[in-house]
Design a protein around this nucleic acid. Sequence first.
DNA 1: ATCGCCTCCTGCGCGC
DNA 2: TGCGCGCAGGAGGCGA
Length: 271
Amino acid sequence: MPELPEVETTLKGISPYIDQQKIKNINIYNPNMRWPVDPHLSNHLLNKSLLSIIRRGKYLILTFDNGYLLLHLGMSGSLRVVDPSISPEKHDHFEIIFNNNKALRLRDPRRFGAVVWTEKPWQQHKLIKHLGPEPLSEEFTAAYLHKKSRKKTVCIKTFIMNSQVVVGVGNIYASESLYLAGIRPTINAGRISLKRYESLVAAIKQVLAEAIKQGGTTLRDFSSPEGKPGYFAQKLQVYGRAGEACYQCDNLIKQKTIANRATYYCTNCQH
DNA sequence: ATCGCCTCCTGCGCGC
DNA sequence: TGCGCGCAGGAGGCGA
Protein backbone atom coordinates (compact mmCIF):
# COMPACT_ATOMS: atom_id res chain seq x y z
CA MET A 1 0.00 0.00 0.00
CA PRO A 2 2.23 2.79 1.15
CA GLU A 3 4.98 4.49 -0.77
CA LEU A 4 7.08 7.25 0.73
CA PRO A 5 4.33 9.89 0.82
CA GLU A 6 1.95 7.53 2.59
CA VAL A 7 4.58 6.61 5.18
CA GLU A 8 5.37 10.30 5.68
CA THR A 9 1.66 11.03 6.12
CA THR A 10 1.48 8.21 8.66
CA LEU A 11 4.47 9.58 10.57
CA LYS A 12 2.97 13.06 10.78
CA GLY A 13 -0.33 11.59 11.90
CA ILE A 14 0.92 9.40 14.73
CA SER A 15 3.91 11.36 16.01
CA PRO A 16 2.05 14.02 18.06
CA TYR A 17 0.25 11.32 20.06
CA ILE A 18 3.15 9.05 20.89
CA ASP A 19 6.42 11.01 20.80
CA GLN A 20 8.10 11.09 24.25
CA GLN A 21 5.43 8.86 25.74
CA LYS A 22 6.24 5.90 27.99
CA ILE A 23 5.20 2.39 27.00
CA LYS A 24 2.65 0.77 29.29
CA ASN A 25 1.95 -2.42 27.39
CA ILE A 26 2.66 -4.34 24.19
CA ASN A 27 0.21 -6.70 22.50
CA ILE A 28 1.18 -9.08 19.73
CA TYR A 29 -2.05 -10.48 18.33
CA ASN A 30 -0.43 -12.23 15.38
CA PRO A 31 3.35 -12.52 15.18
CA ASN A 32 3.33 -13.91 11.63
CA MET A 33 4.44 -10.86 9.74
CA ARG A 34 7.15 -10.86 7.08
CA TRP A 35 9.43 -12.12 9.84
CA PRO A 36 8.11 -13.43 13.16
CA VAL A 37 7.68 -10.59 15.63
CA ASP A 38 10.05 -11.01 18.59
CA PRO A 39 7.92 -12.63 21.33
CA HIS A 40 10.10 -10.93 23.96
CA LEU A 41 9.45 -7.43 22.68
CA SER A 42 7.79 -6.53 26.00
CA ASN A 43 10.99 -7.32 27.87
CA HIS A 44 12.81 -4.68 25.85
CA LEU A 45 10.10 -2.04 25.69
CA LEU A 46 7.99 -2.02 28.87
CA ASN A 47 8.33 1.30 30.72
CA LYS A 48 10.61 2.70 28.02
CA SER A 49 9.99 6.17 26.65
CA LEU A 50 9.81 6.80 22.92
CA LEU A 51 12.69 9.23 22.38
CA SER A 52 11.98 9.92 18.72
CA ILE A 53 10.21 8.60 15.65
CA ILE A 54 11.58 9.19 12.18
CA ARG A 55 11.17 7.87 8.67
CA ARG A 56 13.96 6.37 6.54
CA GLY A 57 12.72 5.29 3.14
CA LYS A 58 9.52 3.39 3.84
CA TYR A 59 10.67 2.38 7.32
CA LEU A 60 9.55 4.09 10.50
CA ILE A 61 12.21 4.03 13.20
CA LEU A 62 11.25 4.34 16.85
CA THR A 63 14.17 5.18 19.13
CA PHE A 64 14.45 4.03 22.76
CA ASP A 65 17.36 4.23 25.19
CA ASN A 66 18.10 0.52 24.71
CA GLY A 67 17.44 0.00 21.00
CA TYR A 68 15.24 0.65 18.02
CA LEU A 69 11.98 -0.62 16.69
CA LEU A 70 11.78 -0.72 12.89
CA LEU A 71 8.30 -0.74 11.37
CA HIS A 72 7.49 -1.39 7.73
CA LEU A 73 3.98 -1.30 6.30
CA GLY A 74 4.54 -3.62 3.34
CA MET A 75 1.76 -3.52 0.73
CA SER A 76 -1.29 -3.30 2.96
CA GLY A 77 -0.15 -2.03 6.35
CA SER A 78 -1.46 0.98 8.22
CA LEU A 79 -0.96 2.54 11.62
CA ARG A 80 -3.62 4.19 13.75
CA VAL A 81 -3.63 5.81 17.14
CA VAL A 82 -6.73 4.55 18.93
CA ASP A 83 -8.25 4.23 22.38
CA PRO A 84 -6.97 0.87 23.68
CA SER A 85 -10.48 -0.02 24.91
CA ILE A 86 -11.55 -0.38 21.27
CA SER A 87 -11.27 -4.08 20.44
CA PRO A 88 -8.66 -5.02 17.86
CA GLU A 89 -10.03 -6.25 14.57
CA LYS A 90 -9.16 -9.25 12.44
CA HIS A 91 -6.06 -7.79 10.83
CA ASP A 92 -4.76 -5.80 13.79
CA HIS A 93 -1.58 -7.72 14.58
CA PHE A 94 0.41 -5.55 16.92
CA GLU A 95 0.01 -2.61 19.26
CA ILE A 96 1.95 -0.44 21.65
CA ILE A 97 -0.03 1.13 24.49
CA PHE A 98 1.39 4.30 25.99
CA ASN A 99 0.95 5.90 29.40
CA ASN A 100 -1.25 8.62 27.92
CA ASN A 101 -3.75 5.86 27.13
CA LYS A 102 -3.15 5.92 23.40
CA ALA A 103 -2.58 2.71 21.46
CA LEU A 104 -0.47 2.64 18.31
CA ARG A 105 -2.07 -0.17 16.36
CA LEU A 106 -0.69 -1.90 13.26
CA ARG A 107 -3.20 -3.31 10.81
CA ASP A 108 -1.91 -5.32 7.85
CA PRO A 109 -4.21 -7.77 6.02
CA ARG A 110 -1.49 -9.22 3.79
CA ARG A 111 1.15 -9.31 6.53
CA PHE A 112 4.01 -8.26 4.25
CA GLY A 113 4.88 -5.63 6.82
CA ALA A 114 7.51 -5.96 9.52
CA VAL A 115 8.11 -5.21 13.20
CA VAL A 116 11.80 -5.62 13.93
CA TRP A 117 13.67 -4.96 17.18
CA THR A 118 17.37 -4.12 17.00
CA GLU A 119 19.87 -3.06 19.63
CA LYS A 120 22.65 -1.93 17.36
CA PRO A 121 22.44 1.53 15.74
CA TRP A 122 19.59 1.45 13.27
CA GLN A 123 21.79 2.79 10.48
CA GLN A 124 23.78 -0.44 10.63
CA HIS A 125 20.82 -2.80 10.50
CA LYS A 126 20.87 -5.01 7.41
CA LEU A 127 17.46 -3.75 6.29
CA ILE A 128 18.64 -0.13 6.42
CA LYS A 129 22.37 -0.24 5.78
CA HIS A 130 22.23 -0.52 2.00
CA LEU A 131 19.40 1.94 1.38
CA GLY A 132 20.04 4.68 -1.15
CA PRO A 133 19.55 8.41 -0.49
CA GLU A 134 16.28 10.05 0.41
CA PRO A 135 14.72 11.37 -2.81
CA LEU A 136 13.90 14.75 -1.27
CA SER A 137 17.41 15.27 0.09
CA GLU A 138 20.22 17.24 -1.52
CA GLU A 139 22.26 14.07 -1.97
CA PHE A 140 19.77 12.83 -4.53
CA THR A 141 21.03 14.47 -7.69
CA ALA A 142 21.20 13.80 -11.41
CA ALA A 143 24.97 13.36 -11.11
CA TYR A 144 24.45 10.65 -8.50
CA LEU A 145 21.85 8.76 -10.56
CA HIS A 146 23.90 9.11 -13.74
CA LYS A 147 27.03 7.75 -12.10
CA LYS A 148 25.16 4.96 -10.34
CA SER A 149 23.47 3.84 -13.55
CA ARG A 150 26.55 3.53 -15.79
CA LYS A 151 26.85 0.04 -17.29
CA LYS A 152 23.49 -0.91 -15.79
CA THR A 153 21.25 -2.86 -18.13
CA VAL A 154 18.06 -2.72 -16.06
CA CYS A 155 15.26 -0.58 -17.35
CA ILE A 156 14.89 2.83 -15.82
CA LYS A 157 11.64 2.06 -14.02
CA THR A 158 13.13 -0.95 -12.23
CA PHE A 159 16.24 1.10 -11.49
CA ILE A 160 14.44 3.93 -9.68
CA MET A 161 12.26 1.46 -7.78
CA ASN A 162 15.37 -0.22 -6.35
CA SER A 163 15.70 1.03 -2.78
CA GLN A 164 19.47 0.65 -2.97
CA VAL A 165 19.44 3.31 -5.68
CA VAL A 166 16.93 5.68 -4.09
CA VAL A 167 14.36 4.98 -1.40
CA GLY A 168 10.65 5.54 -1.45
CA VAL A 169 9.84 5.47 -5.17
CA GLY A 170 7.22 2.77 -5.45
CA ASN A 171 5.10 1.55 -8.32
CA ILE A 172 2.73 4.51 -8.55
CA TYR A 173 5.28 7.28 -8.30
CA ALA A 174 7.75 5.54 -10.62
CA SER A 175 5.23 5.65 -13.47
CA GLU A 176 4.20 9.19 -12.58
CA SER A 177 7.76 10.52 -12.39
CA LEU A 178 8.81 8.95 -15.69
CA TYR A 179 5.77 10.45 -17.38
CA LEU A 180 6.54 13.89 -16.02
CA ALA A 181 10.16 13.56 -17.18
CA GLY A 182 9.12 12.28 -20.62
CA ILE A 183 11.17 9.12 -20.24
CA ARG A 184 9.90 5.75 -21.39
CA PRO A 185 9.97 3.27 -18.50
CA THR A 186 11.46 0.46 -20.62
CA ILE A 187 14.73 2.07 -21.65
CA ASN A 188 18.03 1.03 -20.12
CA ALA A 189 19.12 3.05 -17.10
CA GLY A 190 22.71 2.92 -18.31
CA ARG A 191 21.91 4.66 -21.58
CA ILE A 192 20.22 7.73 -20.17
CA SER A 193 22.13 11.02 -20.40
CA LEU A 194 22.97 13.27 -17.48
CA LYS A 195 20.66 15.87 -18.94
CA ARG A 196 17.72 13.49 -18.93
CA TYR A 197 18.55 12.45 -15.37
CA GLU A 198 18.24 16.13 -14.45
CA SER A 199 14.63 15.99 -15.64
CA LEU A 200 13.99 12.71 -13.89
CA VAL A 201 15.38 13.80 -10.53
CA ALA A 202 13.35 17.01 -10.70
CA ALA A 203 10.25 14.97 -11.59
CA ILE A 204 10.71 12.50 -8.72
CA LYS A 205 11.15 15.31 -6.22
CA GLN A 206 8.16 17.20 -7.58
CA VAL A 207 5.85 14.17 -7.63
CA LEU A 208 6.78 12.99 -4.13
CA ALA A 209 6.62 16.47 -2.61
CA GLU A 210 3.21 17.08 -4.13
CA ALA A 211 1.95 13.67 -2.99
CA ILE A 212 3.09 14.39 0.58
CA LYS A 213 1.32 17.73 0.42
CA GLN A 214 -1.86 15.94 -0.65
CA GLY A 215 -1.60 13.41 2.17
CA GLY A 216 -0.66 10.50 -0.10
CA THR A 217 -2.64 8.50 -2.63
CA THR A 218 -5.79 6.61 -1.72
CA LEU A 219 -6.49 3.94 -4.34
CA ARG A 220 -8.41 1.37 -2.36
CA ASP A 221 -8.00 1.72 1.34
CA PHE A 222 -5.13 3.98 2.32
CA SER A 223 -6.03 6.55 4.93
CA SER A 224 -4.04 8.70 7.28
CA PRO A 225 -3.92 7.74 10.95
CA GLU A 226 -6.76 10.21 11.47
CA GLY A 227 -8.81 8.28 8.93
CA LYS A 228 -8.56 10.88 6.18
CA PRO A 229 -7.91 9.70 2.60
CA GLY A 230 -5.00 10.99 0.54
CA TYR A 231 -5.93 13.28 -2.30
CA PHE A 232 -3.09 12.61 -4.72
CA ALA A 233 -5.14 10.03 -6.66
CA GLN A 234 -6.91 12.95 -8.31
CA LYS A 235 -3.58 14.16 -9.65
CA LEU A 236 -2.35 10.90 -11.13
CA GLN A 237 -1.41 11.42 -14.79
CA VAL A 238 -0.89 7.83 -15.94
CA TYR A 239 -1.12 5.31 -13.09
CA GLY A 240 -4.23 3.18 -13.49
CA ARG A 241 -5.26 5.02 -16.67
CA ALA A 242 -4.66 2.28 -19.26
CA GLY A 243 -6.69 2.92 -22.41
CA GLU A 244 -7.59 6.45 -21.36
CA ALA A 245 -6.42 9.60 -23.12
CA CYS A 246 -3.08 11.17 -22.23
CA TYR A 247 -3.71 14.60 -20.70
CA GLN A 248 -0.98 16.12 -22.89
CA CYS A 249 -1.53 14.58 -26.32
CA ASP A 250 -4.75 12.53 -26.31
CA ASN A 251 -2.89 9.32 -27.17
CA LEU A 252 -4.12 6.29 -25.25
CA ILE A 253 -2.14 5.43 -22.12
CA LYS A 254 -0.40 2.10 -22.47
CA GLN A 255 -0.08 -0.53 -19.75
CA LYS A 256 2.80 -2.98 -19.74
CA THR A 257 4.12 -5.36 -17.10
CA ILE A 258 7.71 -4.64 -16.14
CA ALA A 259 9.38 -6.85 -13.54
CA ASN A 260 5.97 -8.18 -12.56
CA ARG A 261 4.59 -4.71 -11.87
CA ALA A 262 1.95 -2.83 -13.82
CA THR A 263 3.51 0.13 -15.61
CA TYR A 264 1.71 3.00 -17.33
CA TYR A 265 3.06 5.41 -19.91
CA CYS A 266 2.33 7.43 -23.03
CA THR A 267 4.15 6.14 -26.10
CA ASN A 268 3.89 9.57 -27.67
CA CYS A 269 5.12 11.74 -24.78
CA GLN A 270 7.74 9.37 -23.38
CA HIS A 271 10.86 8.39 -25.31
C1' DA B 1 28.43 -9.39 -8.71
C1' DT B 2 24.28 -8.51 -11.12
C1' DC B 3 19.71 -9.21 -12.73
C1' DG B 4 15.06 -11.05 -13.25
C1' DC B 5 11.76 -13.72 -11.25
C1' DC B 6 9.21 -15.69 -7.42
C1' DT B 7 7.34 -15.44 -3.15
C1' DC B 8 5.03 -14.22 1.18
C1' DC B 9 -0.70 -13.21 2.22
C1' DT B 10 -5.60 -11.60 2.09
C1' DG B 11 -9.25 -9.04 -0.13
C1' DC B 12 -11.60 -7.15 -3.84
C1' DG B 13 -13.67 -6.52 -8.29
C1' DC B 14 -14.71 -8.49 -12.40
C1' DG B 15 -16.70 -11.79 -15.72
C1' DC B 16 -19.27 -15.83 -16.26
C1' DT C 1 -25.93 -14.44 -5.94
C1' DG C 2 -21.98 -17.24 -6.13
C1' DC C 3 -17.66 -18.68 -7.67
C1' DG C 4 -13.04 -18.58 -9.65
C1' DC C 5 -9.59 -15.84 -11.33
C1' DG C 6 -6.30 -12.11 -11.63
C1' DC C 7 -4.54 -8.38 -9.58
C1' DA C 8 -3.00 -5.17 -5.73
C1' DG C 9 0.75 0.71 -3.31
C1' DG C 10 6.97 -4.00 -1.29
C1' DA C 11 11.10 -6.01 -1.35
C1' DG C 12 13.96 -9.92 0.35
C1' DG C 13 15.92 -13.94 -1.46
C1' DC C 14 17.11 -17.17 -4.80
C1' DG C 15 18.88 -19.24 -8.99
C1' DA C 16 20.90 -18.32 -13.46
